[in-house]
């Protein structure tokens, strides 16, 4: 009787810790049996590339999650950054460097504004960043009166052709490769490594997690909660803007509200990340694995000619499974 109970707990713990990994491996195994070219090196690279945008935005969201927040504006910041970059190069001909620096600065500032409304105005994280999401999406539509910004576009009121182009250096961020590895993948991995080291191996990371698990306790132990929350949102804005630059370079244009569709997948990836290795809290490695799980599913299902709605069904089931693992454990 006793041993049996112990065994079942062990099995549960095992499932809890490695359940998500198990799901990922099972997915890979399934596809590699049924699809000839699934395990080709080029396809593995392709999966990484396909999740680079979701990966980066979910890392941005992860930063906000560590301080018990939730940055819903991250995807909109990404879309906004892509439009600003395109406007700088195509319409204003200001060159690559400002087209990269300014969107990133804007991302950081937007993060700061988010934090201001959350901390000073006492609006909940969800609502403050939701409002910011609408605001940014709206502004990015008005930016070029509803149309995308792209090379050789005609200007309104018969003012001829747009003078500038998206520079090769900028496009390299989305289309380039280094030793056969696509640049978006490299950027995602660098940012992931940075977030990982920051959260797990610096005292700031520890403070972030302390704020996230118990804000009152953190405050009582002398951690400047407001300051670190602000920093967390600014970092979220920073990473989201980087995601936007990669997105714009990959598409080769500044598309209107291009970031928005990545929001839900990114939130899902960040939450799947909780369950990886049974960590039970936001973390960089889990987030990237969460993004990769969804990218792998999409990749295989596309190869199998599944239409999008069936992909969504599978995605939903996987998310429910991963979240059940996390929250069932927490409850007990």
């Amino acid at each position: 009787m006793k041993t049996e109970e112990k065994n079942s707990i062990d099995l549960f713990n095992l499932l809890y810790k490695y359940g998500t990994i198990f799901v990922i491996l099972a997915t890979i195994l399934f596809f590699s049996i049924f699809l000839d070219n699934f395990m080709k090196f080029s396809n593995i690279i392709n999966i990484f590339r396909s999740v680079s945008i979701v990966g980066l935005i979910s890392l941005a969201i992860t930063m906000s999650l560590t301080v018990d927040g939730l940055d819903l504006s991250a995807a909109a910041i990404a879309g906004f950054a892509a439009v600003i970059a395109a406007k700088f190069m195509v319409i204003w001909e200001l060159g690559t460097v400002p087209a990269i620096i300014v969107p990133i600065l804007v991302g950081v500032i937007v993060g700061g504004v988010n934090a201001f409304f959350i901390i000073k105005m006492n609006i909940s994280d969800l609502l403050a960043t939701l409002s910011m999401m609408f605001l940014l999406t709206g502004i990015s539509v008005t930016f070029q009166s509803g149309t995308a910004i792209y090379n050789y576009m005609p200007l309104p009121n018969n003012q001829g052709m747009a003078p500038g182009v998206l520079t090769d250096a900028y496009l390299f961020l989305g289309k380039g490769t280094i030793f056969r590895i696509p640049v978006p993948v490299i950027i995602m991995l660098i940012v992931a490594l940075f977030v990982f080291v920051f959260l797990n191996h610096t005292k700031y990371g520890r403070f972030f997690y302390m704020i996230g698990s118990n804000q009152e306790a953190a405050k009582l132990s002398g951690i400047p909660v407001k300051k670190y929350k602000t920093i967390a949102y600014m970092m979220s804005g920073f990473i989201a803007a980087v995601a936007g630059l990669v997105l714009g370079a990959r598409m080769g244009s500044g598309e209107v509200s291009a970031g928005d569709p990545y929001l839900m997948d990114s939130v899902a990836a960040a939450f799947i990340g909780f369950s990886v290795f049974g960590i039970g809290r936001p973390n960089a490695l889990g987030t990237i694995l969460g993004a990769l799980l969804m990218g792998t599913l999409l990749n295989g299902l596309v190869m199998m000619n599944f239409p999008y709605y069936s992909q969504d069904i599978v995605k939903g089931i996987v998310l429910i499974l991963a979240l059940s693992l996390t929250y069932y454990k927490k409850k007990n």
Partner: peptide, 27 residues
Amino acid sequence: VATIDQGTDNPMGDAQTALETILTTSD
């Protein structure tokens, strides 16, 4: 040889990703 249907949410981005997958894995 393949049919791509990614709905209407993110047509341009999803179409790019889906065709990349098919181009990488086809002979």
